[in-house]
Design a protein around this nucleic acid. Structure first.
Length: 346
DNA sequence: AGGCAGTACTG
DNA sequence: CAGTAC
DNA sequence: GCCT
């Protein structure tokens, strides 16, 4: 019989597998990494016990689970471990997985730090940065070193995801300030916060404007901002008082619909929309639909309704955009009616 | 067998 | 440009 | 790695 092992534990194993592969050779295992991460996410959302599914021989019905991953799940259920995982752990120190969580440190740098300085933990990374050792490495300088120190501090400030209600308050404060600026035609919350998720990792904001520069300026200078992570013409990123990261993108108003759709996600939902677009001879990104026939012809959408209309779909509310059947439901014109506060009476 | 997204910011 | 993040 |  199978061991006591939860869906979550299996998901964690696949995430670990993905991270270790990333450290070993991110490019070489690019698609395997994505595959493992997809399955990890699917397992966390799975409403059923994987063991029951496995007992029925139906593992491959899980999204993203094929023959190889099904075998790995069975291996986990039977032995509690994965041979592949153990082998990788022997090659790559597990502590490096935490180092990957530091902003600005990806697999290349994590391995560089490990091989050149023997760093295998965030604590060691912090010590090395304080001692000015990182700047001696190729491609690193005093500034990168400082950034890493700040990222480690930020990591300590927010270990868990934020509750949506807390994040919403923080988001609305910024949003109001943006809306009050001249030349801001629209400003909206995007991301998981807009999708109504219970917890969120960061705040995504979107503005429509023809003059992004002064808006980005105002954004990074908002009183709630404690640190500017990045600032560009169309995209800036800050850390707020709450420790939350907040990203702002600026797009011209005639492209606001595609942008809002894109940045609202979820990623899985976006992938499905892109597929539908491709079937219609169009590629879809945050800026527009673009004809794939080489003409470069663009179809601009100022509203999300236009985006869905272009794909012959009824409008799908953000709360449903998780690729959990909403596309099919929309195609069948059978979207569930969401319950709104106004629908509830005492 | 071939696709799997593509763009923006930093140093 | 490489590396990173979304 | 999985999917079409």
């Amino acid at each position: 019989m199978f061991r006591m092992i939860s869906n979550r534990q299996i998901a964690d194993a696949f995430d670990l597998l993905a991270d270790l592969l990333r450290l070993k050779d991110a490019e070489g295992y690019r698609f395997e990494i994505i595959a493992y991460q997809r399955v990890a996410e699917a397992l966390r959302e799975l409403p059923r016990d994987v063991r029951a599914l496995a007992a029925e021989g139906r593992l491959q019905e899980i999204d993203g689970v094929g023959k190889a991953i099904a075998a790995k799940i069975l291996e986990l259920l039977e032995h509690g471990t994965l041979r592949l995982l153990e082998e990788l752990k022997a090659e790559v120190p597990q502590g490096l997985v935490d180092v990957l969580r530091v902003n600005g440190v990806g697999p290349k740098r994590a391995m560089l730090f490990y091989q050149q300085l023997g760093i295998t933990s965030v604590a060691e990374l912090e010590a090395a940065a304080r001692e000015g050792k990182l700047r001696t490495l190729p491609g690193m300088g005093a500034k990168s070193e400082q950034k890493i120190l700040e990222s480690i501090a930020a990591l300590a400030r927010r270990t868990t995801r934020a509750r949506a209600d807390i994040a919403l308050q923080a988001a609305e404060r910024i949003l109001r300030a943006l809306q009050a600026l001249p030349n801001v035609l629209r400003a909206e919350i995007a991301g998981s916060l807009r999708r109504g998720r219970a917890t969120i990792g960061d705040i995504d904001l979107l503005v429509a404007t023809h003059t992004p520069a002064p808006i980005m300026d105002a954004f990074v200078n908002h009183p709630d901002v404690v640190r500017v992570l990045a600032q560009g013409e169309t995209k800036s990123s800050v850390e707020l008082l709450s420790g939350l990261q907040c990203d702002l993108r600026a797009v011209p108003p005639e492209r606001f619909g595609t942008a809002l759709s894109y940045f609202t996600g979820s990623q899985a939902h976006n992938i499905r929309l892109r597929e539908l677009a491709l079937q219609r001879g169009l590629s879809l990104n945050e800026w527009a639909f673009t004809a794939t026939d080489g003409s470069g012809r663009e179809i601009l959408c100022a509203s999300e309704e236009e985006v869905y209309a272009q794909l012959d779909l009824p409008y799908i509310p953000p709360e449903l955009r998780e690729d959990r059947g909403e596309i099919e439901a929309a195609q069948a014109n059978a979207l569930p009616n969401l319950i709104e506060i106004s629908h509830i009476r005492a």
